[in-house]
């Protein structure tokens, strides 16, 4: 059940200046937006969004930010990682929607998988990608082969694509026609996501947002990732929430809780 399965890394794919995707030959049966818990004995165990899953092989993308992620990016094929999951409520995959995905930084991971699944189902996709600089963009090349998909890029320094925020691209796309069938899917820094939600409210467009909270168990018992005032668990009822739910989460864009449960303001 929810005890780690030790899986050997099948291959390691460098994605950009910092990130690597670790692939495993394992039928995870995940849906876009779900996550796994990855454990290295003696170091730590943390949640990672599934970035790739073809039914036989899955992968998740790691940015080195702390002890666990730094250890993970240094691993070689054959090294083993303790995996539990997949967990969480995913993005919807609907064939009759025009998807606009908004990914900031490593938020592009689950959105690339969503874009592939949605396009395979027959949906049209605008894939909007933002990062600080060109070297930190994720999956810009990977999604280029997806049918019925347009890529839009924004970088803070203007090194590739538009100079500015990825949400500015969304503002422009929302002015185009066809609003009834649109589904906006966002994953990235919380203040970016809040901007996406505000725009979707303003234009009355359907959206789904992946909301990350500090995760301990990952399967709904510890209460660490609950959000105010609903008390719903981002590892079970989330991380992906629809617009109505996001609007009812008063802490969204305002604060989150650290591992002690202390509130931290954005």
């Amino acid at each position: 059940m929810d005890s780690p399965l030790l899986l050997p890394i099948a291959r390691v794919q460098p994605e950009n200046a910092q990130a690597k995707t670790l692939y495993f030959d394992h039928a995870l049966h995940s849906q876009p937006g779900q996550f796994v818990m990855a454990w290295l004995p003696g170091i730590d165990q943390k949640p990672f969004s599934v970035a790739y899953d073809n039914g036989r092989e899955f992968g998740f993308t790691v940015f080195p930010v702390g002890p666990l992620s730094q250890a993970l990016v240094s691993l070689q094929p054959g090294d083993r990682v303790g995996i539990t999951g997949p967990y969480g409520h995913p993005f919807s995959v609907k064939k009759d929607r025009h998807y606009i995905t908004i990914g900031g930084g490593y938020g592009a991971g689950p959105l690339a998988l969503l874009a592939e699944r949605a396009a395979a189902a027959g949906a049209q996709v605008d894939f909007c990608l933002g990062a600080k600089t060109e070297g930190l963009l994720l999956f810009a090349q990977r999604v280029k082969t997806v049918p019925n998909l347009r890529v839009h890029i924004a970088t803070d320094d203007g090194s590739l694509g538009r100079r500015g925020y990825v949400t500015e691209i969304l503002e422009e796309l929302l002015l185009e026609t066809g609003a009834q069938t649109r589904l906006i899917a966002a994953c990235g820094p919380e203040l970016m996501e809040k901007k996406v939600l505000d725009l979707c409210n303003e234009h009355d467009v359907e959206c789904e947002i992946s909301l990350e909270r500090y995760t301990k168990c990952g399967f709904g018992v510890c209460g660490q990732c609950c959000v105010d005032p609903l008390g719903i668990r981002m590892c079970v009822e989330g991380p992906v929430v629809d617009r109505e739910t996001a609007n009812r989460i008063s802490e969204f864009g305002a604060y989150h809780r650290d591992k002690s449960g202390t509130k931290i303001r954005y």
Binding site: M1, D2, S3, P4, M37, W39, I43, D44, Q45, K46, K216, C217, F219, V221, C222, Q224, R257, D258, K259, S260, G261, T262, K263
Partner: peptide, 28 residues
């Protein structure tokens, strides 16, 4: 005082038993 508790894994679930060592994390 606030406590961060233990690093993960802090919980394990199996069919017959559940096991935890969260380490009394709390905001104080």
């Amino acid at each position: 005082a606030p406590r961060a508790g233990h690093p993960n894994p802090t919980m394990v679930g199996t069919k017959t038993y559940f096991l935890n060592a969260v380490g009394l994390s709390n905001p104080g």
